[in-house]
């Protein structure tokens, strides 16, 4: 981490010249783009384009070989996942990374860990402060359950839920910590049209009502065009397009690399 610089206040996230490789194979090469505060930005591109790897770099699961990430005017060459969470970067995963044996509400509550102020002894002996904290946490969890219409599944172990519902729980787990930037890895994968509609609505609501900036990966171009104001197109680790949905759609390079293969 190095000092703050002149990032204009409309930009929340900047990716500068990021490169990443696994055992010599380039996953991302010299990638740069920026995300404005309050927008929904989509990362699209064929499988293996480096989209998930990029999200993993943004919240510290992977460390880039070169380049830096600027979040809220702070420069990071490498960021630890904990630090990312502390600074307000929330995240969901492509293949749900929920705590399978815990109930829905317990999964949400784990998202509040970084706000925990009571210590081991207070919790072990259920001292008043611990009791109060638990109550506040549960109140928060309750409101998120309600917001995501998950109340009826409150006490079900998430391992028993359908894939679509699990995606929603995972969104809730990230949301409960009131992130400033939400990274969603294929939040609508494997869903039917109706479920996709529902998920789109939740994401739009979060963005509009809570002002949360969202970066998401999505394959369904229709959904992307409807939901997102900004699209970044990746192909084999290279950026081939960056702009509004309309701009990207007419970009010949993008059509060749990605959209062309879909149609």
């Amino acid at each position: 981490m190095t000092g703050a610089t002149t990032q204009d206040s409309h930009t929340i996230l900047e990716v500068n010249n990021i490169s990443l490789s696994f055992k010599g194979v380039k996953a991302i090469s010299d990638l740069s783009f920026s995300v404005r505060r309050g927008e929904i930005c989509a990362l699209i591109g064929p499988n293996g384009a480096g989209k998930s790897s990029l999200l993993n770099i943004l919240n510290g699961v992977y460390h880039p070989d070169a380049g830096e990430v600027v979040f809220e005017s702070e420069h990071f060459h490498r960021i630890h996942p904990l630090e990312a969470a502390r600074r307000g970067i929330g995240r969901t995963f492509q293949n749900n990374a929920l705590f399978k044996k815990l109930s829905v509400v317990d999964n949400l509550l784990t998202g509040l860990s970084r706000f925990m102020r009571t210590n081991l002894l207070e919790q072990a002996f259920r001292l008043p402060r611990a009791h109060r904290e638990e109550w506040v946490f549960r109140e928060h969890a309750e409101s998120v359950l309600e917001f995501l219409e998950l109340q009826s599944y409150r006490d079900v172990a998430v391992g028993h839920l359908s894939y679509g519902l699990q995606k929603r729980v995972e969104l809730g787990r990230a949301l409960i910590a009131s992130p400033r930037l939400l990274l969603l890895d294929e939040p609508m994968a494997g869903m039917n049209a109706e479920e996709k509609q529902e998920m789109s609505r939740f994401i739009a609501d979060i963005n509009r009502d809570l002002g949360t900036t969202v970066v998401l990966i999505e394959h369904d171009i229709g959904v992307v065009m409807e939901l997102c104001g900004h699209v970044v197109v990746l192909d084999y680790g290279l950026k081939v397009g960056d702009g509004t949905p309309a701009e990207v759609q007419t970009n010949p390079e993008v059509i060749a690399a990605y959209l062309g293969t879909v149609h």
């Binding site: 996942p81 929920l98 317990d106 784990t110 638990e134 787990r173 910590a177």
Partner: peptide, 25 residues
């Protein structure tokens, strides 16, 4: 008390998937 507290939930989160546990803080 412990396993029903936030600490207990954190332990179980680590048990079920420690990478995700780190990512959510």
């Amino acid at each position: 008390n412990l396993v029903k507290s936030q600490i207990g939930r954190n332990w179980m989160a680590i048990r079920d998937m420690d990478t995700a546990a780190a990512v959510i803080g």
